[in-house]
Design a protein around this nucleic acid. Sequence first.
DNA 1: CCATCAACAGTAGTATAGCTATCATTTTTG
DNA 2: CAAAAATGATAGCTATACTACTGTTGATGG
Lengths: 230, 230
Amino acid sequence: MNPNLYIRDPESSELGRNIVRQSIELIHELGFEEFTFKKLAHNIGTTEAGIYRYFENKHRLLTYIITWFWTSMEYRLVFHTNNLPNPRAKIAAAIKLLAFGQEDMFLSEHIDKDLVKDVVVSESNKAYLTKHVNEDNRAMLFKPYKDLCHRIATLFLEYCEHFPYPHSLASTLIETIHHQMFFKTHLPGLTDFGGQENANALQEYCEFFIFSALDRFSTAGIIPRLSESV
Amino acid sequence: MNPNLYIRDPESSELGRNIVRQSIELIHELGFEEFTFKKLAHNIGTTEAGIYRYFENKHRLLTYIITWFWTSMEYRLVFHTNNLPNPRAKIAAAIKLLAFGQEDMFLSEHIDKDLVKDVVVSESNKAYLTKHVNEDNRAMLFKPYKDLCHRIATLFLEYCEHFPYPHSLASTLIETIHHQMFFKTHLPGLTDFGGQENANALQEYCEFFIFSALDRFSTAGIIPRLSESV
DNA sequence: CCATCAACAGTAGTATAGCTATCATTTTTG
DNA sequence: CAAAAATGATAGCTATACTACTGTTGATGG
């Protein structure tokens, strides 16, 4: 993890690990806006000052959590795509993983997977949608997100060599998954996943629009028929 | 505008209009997190209490601004697509408009178009990414967004009758435009628009992935060749 | 075994944000 | 012109964000 994210490494002590674990629970419970270091300190049984020894402010802590997630996601992406036979299968596996459809061990055992998922869906945008995004970017805080994005982009290029938008399509995929998950739960009118209880509907939608885009630019010029892809 | 958004209608007085206009400038300048009613009051020469007579809190004011934007966008969408000859041209016009590529009069004269655009790109997500999204949704605060989304979805269905994801594709389009614009400026590594100075690159990317998705599901089974769409 | 140093708890305190209440004055309007 | 509404000005209260200082504990190393 990038040392710019913290003041003292939270992995280096029990208190530090508690801060991270409990902050995920509390952000999940209250939302990031209502989340404060005082409440977190009370939850852990320490004091506000104790938290400030680890993180400069609550936004840095959020960025730490989200960044840790991207790092873990990239690691798992490599793991789950490494020995698949062809680029198409790799992309399908990547989408499944990104859409939280892959049952999987998380890297860190002491953190609840479903909570992290919800926090990422609801709060990850807030890590970069700030006025100090350029400064944070210079401090390399978003490198894990870019690395993940680049790795997905590389899969796209393996599948379709001359595809002109690999990075944009990768970031579109990631953000779309999160937005559509949020909309499905809270604003279903913005999706088509409302009525049905098809747990894979989002994943199928993503596979559909990603492969539609990639196949259209296929260098071979071969466009699979409807029946092959849906 | 939905009366749940405000306490006193800001369109009903000079002070109210000032609050809205100046808040857009100040949110643009400071970002939503650093924006406060005290600073806004100071900027327009009134007091904090004066602002609170119009808006319950700064989040409601943000939602007002964003909602006003969606309302205006839907109106302009109808205006710019109404007498186009075919669904494909309508969708292309919609994308151009949503991507801010359409030179156009805004509905309200007293508000700076470019400022609103930047505020929408950076802050619109924060209108709904909250813990009270369900409550806000019940108060119909997001109806204009849903209406806009539904109208775009309808265009998709006119072009491709049995397309199964019209609403998800519409919300994906809107959110993607904003994210890619933000990334292009602040995190260009997440896009493919960095080096080139092609102002239409984003618009072309959106047309590409939208029509790729729609054409793949074309009921006629006729898939236009690469040369026709890019 | 003691000196030392890092980690941590606890307390206090400042500045600002978020919000409410009150009251006098001005403006609108019936 | 009188009543009602809108505004300006001030005060105040609670919570948040953050900093500083003090004392304790517990591990390390000579």
